[in-house]
């Protein structure tokens, strides 16, 4: 991944800079080691919280070498790490000499109260973000709450550390603290307000709404008049805000781009009506507008230039990034051999069946398609059941030894497939996957 190490180094430098400044400006003090460690955890935790804004702001410079498939889960993990550090911060201070009144006392300074309020808020924020789906919270509602809670926590932690931190008397650390806060405010405003407003000034237009199966629709977008469509790699995705009728929700969601970048004038997304928002996708009309923020992701065969043989495994609507890859291979005559294992419930659920079967007769790419149905009709003569170890072993055959695997399925299916593929001798380094949701 080009340039990735420099980004990681810059991020680490940002996290560790407060510790370096602390050591340089206050080399020694009479406090205990445990107390000093508690302080360090506090400084580190604050720096990570500020870094969270940078990770979440969808900045091209930050995201490009990794893809949001890595930066967003990394943002989640760093949120957990920051929460653990900020739990240990008061515990170590108390153990190191401040005593238990720091934790349980009520007669404490107002800036300690700020920390006592911000820590539960942070824990709630992290817990809800990790368990959103199982708690039944809608994505849009969670996003709104996250956008309020995150900055509130950062502001409270800033005020707490500014007033409570003995090290914050040093001017270099004060400059860094104010600089980080200013950067956070700037990035948050840009991400949540300025960029959405800027993008909404030149929306894309929906020029076709096509029903693929009873539950799946393809929307075709054309760029604003006089503008070129954005450039993208096959398999990437876009953030989309549909501006439709008054009664239809205006929410931003991410959808895979299902078309090939070789088509210079349009792009498409193929969407299954399943969740609260996507259930309305069939009500989209030609002429509706769409605010587009794209492209993102690295789920593309172009990221694997040396992989001549590939195995694509799709579960249901997970075919969308893979059809984009296949269409691009077809349009450019890519010299690749691809085995596509496509799992669906019934024959009626198979999206792009005719197109896939038509592509299977070509030389470049050399495509073999195997449909697998979990609830087949009586007339079905192909593979049936779940993609288990026996099927993967039999269908993949020699591919297991050398091919690169690209998987796009629901999370439980991905976990099962990765485990089985590992058991069959496919190292994780040859498996690339994308969940339906980030």
């Amino acid at each position: 991944m080009p340039s990735a190490p420099s980004r990681i180094f810059a991020y680490l430098a940002l996290l560790l800079l407060p510790l370096v400044i602390m050591v340089v400006t206050h080399p020694f003090n009479p406090d205990t080691f445990i107390y000093n460690l508690g302080r360090c955890f506090g400084l580190l935790g604050f720096a990570i919280l500020m870094g969270q804004v940078i990770l979440a702001a969808r900045l091209r410079w930050v995201e490009k070498p990794f893809g949001l498939n890595i930066t967003f889960p990394f943002h989640r993990r760093m949120g957990v790490f920051a929460a653990l550090l900020l739990i240990m911060h008061p515990l170590f201070l108390a153990l190191g000499g401040a005593g238990w009144p720091l934790l349980i006392g009520l007669r404490i300074d107002w800036f300690i109260w700020l920390a006592k309020v911000s820590l539960p808020l942070l824990l709630i924020n992290v817990f809800v973000s990790l368990r959103r789906a199982s708690l039944g919270i809608k994505f849009e509602k969670w996003r709104q709450c996250h956008g309020l809670l995150g900055p509130t926590i950062i502001l409270l932690v800033f005020l707490h550390s500014w007033n409570a931190g003995a090290d914050l008397t040093a001017v270099p650390l004060q400059v860094l603290w104010v600089g980080l806060l200013a950067l956070g405010v700037l990035l948050f405003s840009y991400h949540r307000l300025i960029r959405p407003w800027w993008l909404s000034r030149s929306p894309y237009r929906i020029v076709e709404v096509r029903q693929e199966t009873p539950a799946v629709w393809t929307l075709r977008f054309s760029p604003p008049p006089g503008e070129k469509r954005f450039d993208f790699m096959p398999g990437q995705f876009q953030f989309l805000t549909l501006l439709r009728g008054k009664d239809l929700p205006v929410e931003e969601h991410h959808f895979t781009i299902s078309s090939s970048p070789a088509d210079p004038d349009f792009h498409t997304s193929t969407i299954k009506a399943s969740g609260d928002f996507t259930a309305t996708i069939g009500q989209t009309r030609v002429g509706d507008l769409a605010v587009v923020h794209a492209p993102f992701g690295r789920f593309s065969y172009l990221v694997h230039p040396n992989a001549r043989e590939l195995v694509f495994i799709a579960g249901g609507i997970g075919i969308t990034p893979l059809i984009s890859n296949l269409r691009h291979m077809r349009d450019t005559g890519a010299d690749r051999r691809v085995l596509l294992l496509f799992s669906n419930k019934s024959e009626a659920d198979i999206v792009f069946k005719e197109e896939l079967d038509g592509m299977a007769g070509r030389e470049k790419p050399h495509l073999q398609v195997v449909h697998i149905l979990t609830q087949p009709g009586s007339a079905w003569k192909g593979e049936t059941g779940r993609l288990d170890r026996e099927k993967l072993s039999r269908l993949c055959g020699a591919h297991l030894a050398h091919s690169t695997f690209l998987l796009c399925c629901p999370p439980p299916m991905i976990q099962s497939l990765v485990t089985i593929l590992n058991d069959l001798g496919v190292p994780i380094s040859r498996i690339s996957y994308e969940y339906f949701s980030l």
Partner: peptide, 30 residues
């Protein structure tokens, strides 16, 4: 591939941060 990379980066950042915090606390105390 992504999972492996994510784990490595997360491990590197967490480990480096904890080592740096320990080192900084040691330097200040002794």
């Amino acid at each position: 591939m992504e999972f492996l990379y994510l784990n490595r980066v997360t491990g590197l950042v967490i480990l480096s941060s904890l080592i740096a915090a320990l080192a900084a606390a040691l330097l200040r105390t002794y």
